[in-house]
């Protein structure tokens, strides 16, 4: 793989889709890791806060304080940017391809998830912005003085005790689950791995991974609202 091959692929619709598949793979990997990290909250305040502190020391001593964290953030940011740019260009292409819409149009086998990828992507993007402002910066969703950097356990419990914030998180996770349900399978289809014999395992992988991520993530605000985490 080299520069000219990448440019040739980026110049085609299929190449842009391949970029979406590869960046999607990176983002799904992050989402699964993030969900597993979230579950550490059930080990108690001390261990959960220690996990947050450890994230800043990953790769030590080869990496300095927060260096690996920032590397990961940079990669995620670039993957997100490429994913969104490719999606926007491909969407424009599709909108241009049908200037006159049908008076009547029925879907036969398209799933709800597959038909809501674009809006799902927009919702997830808005959620991520809110999520970072909320738990990373403490800039929204907290009264002044409530948010304490690295007191992640307290921050989560206080943050989710506001019911509409918790409800927004839960709704966003359902959107993420739908996006993953079609996206994970699409990854294999787009990269050409979905051959005549291989389709079913990929569909199963998409179903299982999206359900696990949604349930794992939703459990946290639900547990706070139910008073199980305090």
């Amino acid at each position: 793989m080299n520069a000219s091959a990448v440019m040739m692929l980026w110049g085609t619709s299929i190449g842009k889709k391949a970029v979406m598949a590869v960046t999607g793979f990176i983002l799904v990997g992050f989402v699964i890791g993030h969900m597993l990290g979230n579950l550490k909250i059930y080990q108690g305040e001390e261990k959960f806060n220690a996990y947050a502190a450890w994230l800043r020391e990953v790769g030590s001593p080869a990496f300095g304080h927060e260096q690996f964290l920032w590397l990961a953030r940079l990669i995620l940011l670039m993957a997100t940017a490429l994913h969104i740019v490719a999606a926007a260009q491909l969407t424009q292409m599709s909108y241009d391809a049908r200037p006159v819409s049908y008076a009547q149009k029925k879907a036969i086998q398209a799933t709800y998830a597959s038909r809501t990828m674009r809006w799902g992507g927009v919702i997830i993007t808005l959620f991520v912005v809110y999520h970072i402002l909320h738990f990373t910066f403490g800039a929204v969703g907290f009264t002044p003085g409530q948010y304490k950097h690295l007191s992640v356990y307290r921050n989560v419990v206080i943050g989710f005790s506001v019911w509409y914030v918790a409800a927004f998180y839960i709704a966003a996770m359902v959107a993420l689950g739908l996006h993953m349900y079609h996206g994970v399978w699409s990854m294999f289809q787009t990269l050409g791995l979905n051959t005549e014999n291989a389709g079913r395992p990929y569909q199963a992988l998409a179903t299982v991974s999206s359900i696990v991520v949604v349930l794992g993530n939703i459990s946290v605000p639900t547990a706070v609202l139910a008073g199980l985490l305090k």
Partner: peptide, 15 residues
Amino acid sequence: ARMNHDLIKAGIKVR
């Protein structure tokens, strides 16, 4: 999927 696979492979072979 087969065409996607062929195109990506052909893209890699360009150079």
